[in-house]
């Protein structure tokens, strides 16, 4: 065998090896993607498999029952979650939207950059920390856990989320709209409210909905604020049940009955979160089209 043919065959081997390696790496990346998706499939499967069996009319109309009593439901927790969410939106949405307007319409790059940065930092604050903060500021002076403090804890968490997305959608409004309105002599704030915000209102609603869906599943911020309640909440200054809190309490209990209720509650919670997320996707698709 001549040296040239040897060289050629080794080159060919090398080429083959590279091809095999390419195939191996591409397949392992496919494998990773499958592995990443697997937990979602498993969780959804178990939620439907275990949760659907435990959901009945009583689940939506009754308050929690002791273990052994299969009549229990999470009606108070579902209502409580909506109350908390509503209050969170009342706190978080106006602050977030107005702040987002400032970032998009006013200010200088330096201050806005700092605020943006702080908003991202705030998004990374562990949710349990919010619980302690609101406990110290509201629960201690009010001498008790309450719906009010739970809603405010969630609302504070919403502010940076809403602020960042609101700014993003407002920036998308073409500048020519603002210029045209300015040329007509309309005051700046009226331009912002009646033209810029009005143009982007769908995006802003989306921002609030997405933030709401994120907040709806939060448990840790409610631990020392809303606290949970086995019965109906009777006032702003009373502790209130919430779906995630109830799921947590039941999940770590030792009773089969309560585990079943936890699955059912989780199915309702995730259904709610996914419905918001999916409808938001449809809304944004329409907007782009």
């Amino acid at each position: 065998m001549s040296t040239t043919s040897l060289l050629a065959s080794s080159r060919q081997n090398n080429h083959l090896w590279r091809k095999i390696k390419n195939w191996l790496m591409v397949s392992s990346s496919i494998g990773s993607a499958l592995l990443v998706i697997l937990p979602l499939g498993l969780v959804l499967f178990y939620l439907v498999y275990k949760g659907a069996a435990a959901i009945n009319l009583g689940f939506f109309t009754n308050v929690p029952a002791p273990p052994g009593d299969t009549d229990g439901g999470m009606a108070n927790a579902i209502v409580g979650s909506f109350l908390l969410l509503g209050m969170a939106v009342l706190v978080g949405a106006p602050m977030g939207i107005l702040g987002g307007i400032y970032l998009s319409e006013y200010g200088n790059e330096k201050l806005n950059g700092a605020i943006r940065f702080c908003a991202d930092v705030l998004n990374g604050v562990p949710s349990i920390v919010w619980s302690i903060i609101v406990y110290e500021v509201l629960v201690v002076p009010m001498r008790g856990y309450s719906l009010l403090s739970g809603g405010i804890a969630l609302g504070l968490m919403m502010i940076p989320l809403v602020l960042r997305t609101t700014e993003e959608v407002l920036v998308l409004v073409p500048n020519s709209y603002r210029e045209a309105a300015l040329a007509l002599g309309i005051a700046r704030w009226q331009i912002i409210v009646k033209i810029v915000v009005a143009t982007a209102y769908k995006g802003i609603i989306t921002a609030v909905l997405v933030a709401g869906a994120r907040i709806a599943g939060e448990t840790a911020p409610l631990l020392f604020t809303a606290f949970g309640n086995l019965n109906w909440c009777t006032g702003l200054n009373q502790p209130v049940a919430a779906l995630p809190l109830q799921i947590y309490a039941y999940a770590i209990s030792a009773y089969e009955d309560w585990h079943r209720q936890a699955w059912a509650g989780a199915l309702v919670l995730i259904g709610f979160v996914f419905i918001i997320n999916i409808s938001v996707r449809f809304m944004t698709r329409e907007r782009k089209a």
């Binding site: 969780v43 936890a262 997320n277």
Partner: peptide, 24 residues
């Protein structure tokens, strides 16, 4: 589609991961 699925994965609340983890 895969990106959408991963976004859904991100939307699953912590307490539900906990529930699934501890019971399954």
């Amino acid at each position: 589609p895969v990106v959408s699925i991963i976004e859904m994965l991100a939307a699953v609340p912590s307490v539900i991961w906990g529930l699934w983890a501890i019971l399954v």
